[in-house]
């Protein structure tokens, strides 16, 4: 089956910034993404866990976008403007998709 190259951008960001990030992505023309809950983790800013938390302040979410490689810079620029000062991780990896016209 024919596969097409694509980029997978994974942004782990503070839950309170989720709406701001997805707004920025939408404005940059990236309308396809998936948001996953993050149940816990550990990093430079210490440990966090979603268990038992009532507020959103202590939690993180993962936003995953699959896009055509040509659109990567625009996506990273708009995403970085939102996440720059916040706790989180931005990573990019190569991947393949089956239906290129959707990305």
């Amino acid at each position: 089956m024919k596969m097409h190259e694509a980029k997978r951008v994974e942004i782990i960001i503070e839950a309170v910034m989720e709406g701001r990030l997805t707004n920025a992505l939408n404005e940059a023309g990236v309308t396809g993404y998936t948001i996953l809950p993050v149940s816990g983790g550990s990093g430079r800013s210490g440990q966090w866990s979603r268990e038992g938390q009532v507020g959103r302040a202590g939690g993180m979410v993962a936003v995953i976008c699959l896009i055509h490689p040509d659109r990567l810079d625009a996506l990273l620029e708009s995403a970085f403007a939102v996440v720059e000062r916040h706790i989180g991780v931005v990573s990019v990896s190569d991947t393949y998709v089956l239906r290129a016209e959707r990305f």
């Binding site: 503070e14 309170v16 910034m17 009532v54 507020g55 959103r56 302040a57 202590g58 916040h86």
Partner: peptide
């Protein structure tokens, strides 16, 4: 609850 989120 309210302030931590706003501060983040």
């Amino acid at each position: 609850i309210a302030v931590p989120a706003a501060m983040r």
